[in-house]
Design a protein around this nucleic acid. Sequence first.
DNA 1: TGCCATGTTAAACT
DNA 2: GAGTTTAACATGGC
Length: 245
Amino acid sequence: MPEGPSLVILKEAVMPYIGKKILDARGNARINMDRLHQQKIMNILTWGKQFFICLNGVTIRIHFLMFGSYSIGEQTRPDKSLRLCLRFRSGSLYFYTCSVKLMDEDPGSLYDWEADVMNENWNAKKARKKLKAMPETMVCDALLDQQVFSGVGNIIKNEVLYRTRLHPETLIGSIPSRKLTLLITEARKYCFDFLKWKKEFVLKKNWLAHTKKICNRCNLPLIKKYCGNTKRRTFFCENCQVKYL
DNA sequence: TGCCATGTTAAACT
DNA sequence: GAGTTTAACATGGC
C-alpha cells in the first residue's frame, strides 16, 4: 500500500466523498473524534505517501507506514483493529494500521507540492537543484528522500536504479549531468508505470529488479544488499549498473 | 512456522 | 546538543 502511486488510487476512490457529511467517526486512533462529527469533506489531497482528508479548519492526516490498509464501503477487519472509520449517509471509509493525526495547519501551505512525483506540479528542475546540494549522498538514499522525491519508496527506488543503470551506492556528486537528468525523469516515469500496473494488478509481474534473483539483461545473479544510510533492501546488477567514481 | 518487509517517528543511546 | 541506533507500530506473504 504505502508508495505514492498507491495513494493516488486511494485518492481517486475517495473523491466521490467530497462534499459529504461525516455522520459518525470512530476507531482507536488517538484523536479527538468530536472534531470530525457533522463536518463536510472539503477536499482530498495526497503528498507523497501522506493522505489528507480536509475538513473546515482541520485536516485528517493519514500515513500508512509499512502495513497500513483501508477499505471503502465495508469493514474488512475486526472492530478492535479499526484505526478510523468515517461513516457517511452513502457509505463508510475504514483505515487500519496507519498513523492518524489531526492538523490545524492548511496542508496546501505546509508541503512542497512540487516535490511530489505524482503531482501535476512536479518540478524536475527543483529536484535537480536539491540533488546538487547533496553531492555526498548515495543515489539509493537520495531517491528515498521525501523532500526530493516525495512518494518514492523502496520498490520504486530499486526499479528506477535498475532502469537507469545506476549503481545504488553511486554518490550524487559523481553522476554525469545527463545521467542525473535521466534519473529524475525516470523516477517520475516509473511512478506512473507503477500506477498503471497496480491498477491492472500486474505490478509484481513487471518488477525487473525488486526481489529478483537474476539480471534480466545479462543473466548474472543480482546482488541483494542493505545499502546506504537508509539501509533498505536493494537489488542491483553489478555488471549492468555503473558505479561512477 | 518464523522471518521479514512497500515506512516513519521518537526515544534512547554515544 | 549533535549525530546515530534502536524500538515501536502490528499485518501478511512466502
